[in-house]
Design a protein around this nucleic acid. Structure first.
Lengths: 186, 186
DNA sequence: AATCCTACTTGATTGAAATCAAGAAATCAA
DNA sequence: TTGATTTCTTGATTTCAATCAAGTAGGATT
């Protein structure tokens, strides 16, 4: 599948874009290939682009003295962005890295502004910034470990195939031990 | 203090707006006065406006079979919006209501678009939608009840003056008993 | 194949907050 | 003002996930 097709598919989840508009977005993107464990955005840098993950897997984490704190896990089709840093154009607290060899499309904030200048329809792209908000609330404070795990199973079962249990556990803010037990109890 | 002044003050926290731009925003707003316990946005409705809270206090909650789930507490100067519903223009899961008699400015999504058409500078208003994101992360999963409470004390001490303890507890996702004990332990 | 290292599992224990419960204080309504 | 209702406090108990701990399995490297 070519890049534009994957992009079109990703854009479907975001808003109503015509064939032409999708193509225009594609034209404003750069292609990027990274290897396993390469950094896409280092903590302290300003996030000045949207990344569309075409193939592979990426993750977002916060460094700690102990194990890194997983903030987000991304699969092909996802939009990878540190929304806080992007919006505020302040240095990010999180690092974004590739977990697998990955292919991405890069849409810089300048390109985004150029698109919006061409047509307000591209304002819809701003919705991307909300996606992670949805996700953050999705795995809610109030949910039990079992609920969280089953929600991932329903929502993004591939996550569990691709990322190690301890990443999933950190993402869900539970311990690996608890997740292991939840899983065993199915 | 007149409405425009209160609005200007609120806008300072959001972005860089000239005197004229602030005035233009004010001109695009409608004035609204509501009484205690009146509903501003019912669950199931689409949130199609930003509300600037000029005076009074409002809150956002999710209905449950038991006690309502407090999602957000707003004081004068705050921007009151259900961001998810606003962005997606889908029905809201939450209800927004006045806790005290309140005065508000209403900026509809149409007016927002009109402003953005006049000048891209008004895109800064979109930052408002991020404010609650920040807040949601502010009282983090990982914080202890005591940490949460002291953070409110530091951040928004008036909240504790105005809203009953059980609202604060629900907002912080702890029980009233626990909050009472935390408070006693100062 | 042997070694090392990390991930995962499973068990025992602990601890912190929820729940259960009852009484005190504050607010509201008549 | 009185009584009723709700909110807040305080205590006892329970519960559930974290922690501590040890062992097993799987992957990588030589």
């Amino acid at each position: 599948m070519n890049h534009q097709q994957t992009l079109n598919r990703a854009l479907k989840g975001i808003g109503d874009f015509s064939q032409q508009q999708s193509a225009l977005i594609g034209e404003h993107c750069a292609f990027l290939k990274v290897n396993k464990q390469e950094t896409l955005l280092a903590a302290g840098q300003v996030c000045n682009a949207f990344l569309f993950l075409l193939t592979g897997a990426c993750y977002q984490f916060r460094k700690t003295d102990a194990d890194p704190n997983i903030i987000d896990l991304h699969l092909a089709g996802d939009c990878v962005v540190n929304q806080l840093s992007f919006i505020s154009q302040q240095p990010s607290n999180e690092t974004i890295a590739a977990y697998e060899n990955s292919e991405l499309l890069v849409l810089t904030i300048q390109s985004l502004h150029r698109l919006i200048a061409l047509s307000p329809a591209f304002l819809q792209l701003a919705k991307l910034l909300q996606v992670s908000t949805l996700r953050a609330e999705f795995y809610d404070n109030a949910m039990t470990p079992a609920e969280k795990y089953h929600r991932v199973l329903d929502d993004k079962p591939q996550l569990i195939q691709i990322f190690p249990l301890k990443y999933i556990a950190s993402y869900l803010k539970i311990t690996p031990e608890t997740l292991s037990r939840v899983r065993a109890a199915i």
